[in-house]
């Protein structure tokens, strides 16, 4: 059952294969961003750089994923990165503390 969509974009079906296709094109797009060193795809200052280098991947991503998913994944990329860095920071601190303790003893 497909609801009539108000906007022009044809939303992909909600099936396992469609999801896989979306995730794959998302990964492709993010790999491209990694290559050109862009973290936040929503960053307006990076827009021209993304358009110049990852236009194909961006179009595919847009085609294969629902609009809400695209914005979710783009935001998630930044959040995930920050979380990973925070976690690293904590781990480093713990290690440093342990080393400091070790040298005191």
């Amino acid at each position: 059952m497909r609801l009539p969509f108000t906007h022009s974009k044809q939303e992909p079906a909600n099936t396992r294969t469609a999801r896989k296709l979306c995730w794959d094109s998302r990964d492709e797009y993010f790999r491209c961003l990694d290559r050109i060193g862009v973290l936040n795809p929503n960053d307006p200052t990076q827009k021209s750089k993304i358009n110049a280098n990852c236009a194909n991947e961006d179009a595919k991503f847009d085609e294969n994923c629902a609009t809400s998913w695209i914005s979710y994944f783009k935001e998630k990329r930044v959040v995930d990165f920050k979380r990973a860095r925070a976690l690293e920071e904590v781990n480093r601190n713990v290690e440093n503390n342990q080393q400091a303790k070790g040298s005191q003893e």
Partner: peptide, 8 residues
Amino acid sequence: VKPGQDYL
């Protein structure tokens, strides 16, 4: 929600 509205 409006029919067809895309949200998470």
